[in-house]
Write a protein that binds this DNA or RNA. Sequence first.
DNA 1: GTCATCATTTAAATATCGTTAACAATTTTT
DNA 2: AAAAATTGTTAACGATATTTAAATGATGAC
Lengths: 227, 227
Amino acid sequence: MKQFKILYAEDDAALAFLTKDNLELKQYKVSHFTNGQDCLKAFNKEYFDICILDIMLPKMDGFELATAIRKKNADIPIIFLSAKTLNEDKIKGLRLGADDYLVKPFSIEELILKINIFLKRSNKITASNNNFYEIGSIKFDSENYLIIKQEEKISLTQREADLLKLFIENKNIVLKREKILTALWGSNDYFLGRSLDVFVSRLRKIFAAEASISFDNVHGIGFKCSM
Amino acid sequence: MKQFKILYAEDDAALAFLTKDNLELKQYKVSHFTNGQDCLKAFNKEYFDICILDIMLPKMDGFELATAIRKKNADIPIIFLSAKTLNEDKIKGLRLGADDYLVKPFSIEELILKINIFLKRSNKITASNNNFYEIGSIKFDSENYLIIKQEEKISLTQREADLLKLFIENKNIVLKREKILTALWGSNDYFLGRSLDVFVSRLRKIFAAEASISFDNVHGIGFKCSM
DNA sequence: GTCATCATTTAAATATCGTTAACAATTTTT
DNA sequence: AAAAATTGTTAACGATATTTAAATGATGAC
């Protein structure tokens, strides 16, 4: 089972400990930070599936943090946590592009339900646990990172498999570079773009002999997997 | 612009009137019902993009209603509204498959923000935004920069696609050169104007065989796409 | 620590696109 | 009708984007 990665910003140590503990019990992988700056740094370096942000934070508050995150990734779910029950703040948070705003004290169960709602809605949890695909005479087992040709088995790396899965699940439509990058890498910058090109190149090589699938560039936009 | 259809269940007539009015001002199409049974009947008969359900309802309460709706449609966003601030109820609602739970009195702005969040997250906003056009026997998929003739597929570049889309969405009216240039190029100068002419020329070539569409010059003013 | 593996970055070759120039055709003005 | 302005089309150019191989860096197993 896939472990989802949560970026968690909270400066109240006791609350953070409890929350993190509860989430980890539910098999989430939680990276916790006590100030906005460190949190943003982590976001820029690592991949996360969802962000849970306190608003009152040292160095950079939750609003600024959310704004910075949204700029890099338009799609990642963001949930605010706050002691402030002010309607103004709630609205402000949602306007910035957050998905929800839980008022402290919140029940851990509510938080977990919300996390799952947004993981589902942002397609991080695949409703159909489909992980087995057929491309012409080639089979692809995404769970096991495995390509099965007639006799031969090729192991893919995680990135290769993730990219291939993304392409197959969005076949025959143009995927923008930005969309691919935020889906797989969590953000969108120049060098990640070059990296994507390398992986596309590898997939092409693997499927070179297979006429029924191709990974076509759409200049200036992104790629389209035709099959 | 596409109008989203909201299924709204609320037995408090005054509140319902106000809410419906506000939502309609924002261009949503609201179907309002005062009891659960009628609401479910409507859901089974018509298409809706999102459901907003009060919990205390005559004949069939919001929880039952949501359960019935979820059974028919696993994906449609459901937002509960309730005067009950009981945490138990909130959790129960979310467990049933609702996406959110607003406590009355809620601000109309918050409701609207939430509606938009879930329309986006359930891909209603981008997916159904019109990006598919038919011109005589030719189809144009603007999202994928694709012209589909009988057998043949022609890939357009971004500019070509943008210009064609602009023409189609303003068919049979004269578009001033300046308007096209600022819409697509962001500014208006002599050489960009010549560039526009080149793109018009390319579109004409693509549709040369198609009698049902033409890109006509209006001397000294701009162009008109007739179809 | 060393090695192996994979992801990222660099760099150089290659391809594509939007722009521009040139000239022909058309329309408008004089 | 001639001159001027505008438009239509083609082709070439330069900027930008893409491809690929190869070098480098990071991570985890042993």
